[in-house]
Each structure stands twice: as structure tokens, then as C-alpha cells.
Design a protein around this nucleic acid. Sequence first.
DNA 1: TTAACATTTGCACAAATGTTCAAATGTTAT
DNA 2: ATAACATTTGAACATTTGTGCAAATGTTAA
Lengths: 127, 127
Amino acid sequence: MLLYFSMSKIKSAPVCKIEIVDEGKVKKARKLISNSDEIIDIAEIFKLLGDPNRLKIVLALLHRELCVCDLAAVIDSTVSAVSHQLRLLRNARLVKYRKDGKMVYYSIDDEHIAQIINITKVHVKES
Amino acid sequence: MLLYFSMSKIKSAPVCKIEIVDEGKVKKARKLISNSDEIIDIAEIFKLLGDPNRLKIVLALLHRELCVCDLAAVIDSTVSAVSHQLRLLRNARLVKYRKDGKMVYYSIDDEHIAQIINITKVHVKES
DNA sequence: TTAACATTTGCACAAATGTTCAAATGTTAT
DNA sequence: ATAACATTTGAACATTTGTGCAAATGTTAA
């Protein structure tokens, strides 16, 4: 007979020995975070907004579309650095772009972003 | 006579030569992101939520308080790793803790976090 | 065609980050 | 006192990340 243990970390998943109800707690909490793929996707959005320069880009774009060159001027960085960051934001579909001749105009591609940032702003101001 | 140029990057802050209105655009956008300290604080929150394991910790704690050991079991990590992450979340006042004997129970210390995460979840599901 | 401009891209590199391990701290029970 | 347990902490390590540079791409104008 074979016994299988599903533990991704060999070290085992410890459950405290105190309090007999613990195991129920843990199982319930595990279910809440069972959708690992979704969590990774959500974390990806937060990670992108978690860099000050990228956040500045997003904040600037929330007001109106801007070309790469102007964005660099706005956040006081280089065109190259901004372009690198825009690629990440593009891949996550947080921004979209529109080409006009040699210019590329970027804008926000998500209706919720302003909301997310504003709520977080409230948090920061309160603490 | 001395001339001062306020450019933190020596490379200059380029403004595209096309479109004469650009300078106005840039100045307006600059004002929107002028509160650099606040932006850094907001980015800090996002950065913390931007790690899948830390986000799992927060999601688990949103449901109910948990001790470090159980948290480790829930997110399938080690006690040490969880403790390190909790320190970061503590420093940013995203979580608080309560001591009971040798146990330390952590819980969410911010009313907005659930809101922020839920809105982001909507974004992810829509794309 | 060439020149000028806007943007993108690949590489290199330093800085930041997350995890592991081992040791330290603190608490409870024996 | 010692032993057992829960948590924290510091150091080491590999990985990730953001930026600068230079070259490449693409577009417009001369």
C-alpha cells in the first residue's frame, strides 16, 4: 500500500499543536486562497503599480494620453526607461497605445485603475 | 549671472518637437504627480500586495486572524518565510498582531484592503 | 536617397527582493 | 532548573528587477 502526502514544501506544512480547532481554521483559509492562478494575476497588477516610476506613468496617463517622449519628461526619466516600463504595462493590458506617424500615444486601458489608486490614496492619508 | 536648470537626470527632460502644445501637456501632468512622497507611499502598499505569497497571507487574514504557524500551513510555506513577510506587512501597518502566550495572532489592520483587492479581482476577471 | 526624430529592443550590471538555514528570544509546562 | 514550542532575527544566497547604453526599427521630411 502506498501513502501519498501532498506537500509542496518537504519541510511539511506545520499546524500549531495548541488549540484543537486549528486544523479547521487552516482548511477554511486554504480554500479561500485555493485559486492560485487568480491570485498570481492579481499580484501581478499590484506589482506593476508598486514601482514609483510606473505608478507615476499611470497617474499621468489617467489624466490624458501622452507620447513616450513627453512621459519621460513628466516623470523625469529617460525615453528608454519609460519605454521599458510601458512594455510591462502593455503586456498586463493596463495601458493601450495609438500610433500617429512616428509618435506613439499611450493611455489607460482599464476603468478600475483610478478607483484602485484612489482607495489606496485614502489609506495612505489616514495612516 | 548664473543659470539654474532643474534636471535631476543630466540627460535632460526631453519634450517632443512635434506639436507645439506639448509643453503645456507636460507641465500639467507634472503637477499631477508632483506629490512624490505620497506616490512613494502608495507604491509601497501596492508593492507589498504585489507578491503572491504576501497577497495570500493578506487574503487569509481578511477572513479571520491566524497565528504564524497556521499561516505558514495555509500558504504552504515555512514559518520563517511567513514571519519575514509579516514584518513587512506590519511595518506598513497593513496587519496588526495580538499576543496570547507564545502564540502571535495576526489580522488585517486596514479597512480598505478588501476593497482594493476586490476591485483588482474584477479587473483580472474581465481581461 | 539621406537626415532627423520617436520609439523599441537586447545586453550588462547594480540594487532590491524572497527564501533558507541556524541561532536567538520568549513563553509555557514539567 | 530543563524541555518543548512559537516566533523572530540575521546572514547568505540565488533570483528578480529597473536602468543605462548602444544599436535597431520605423516614420517623416528634405
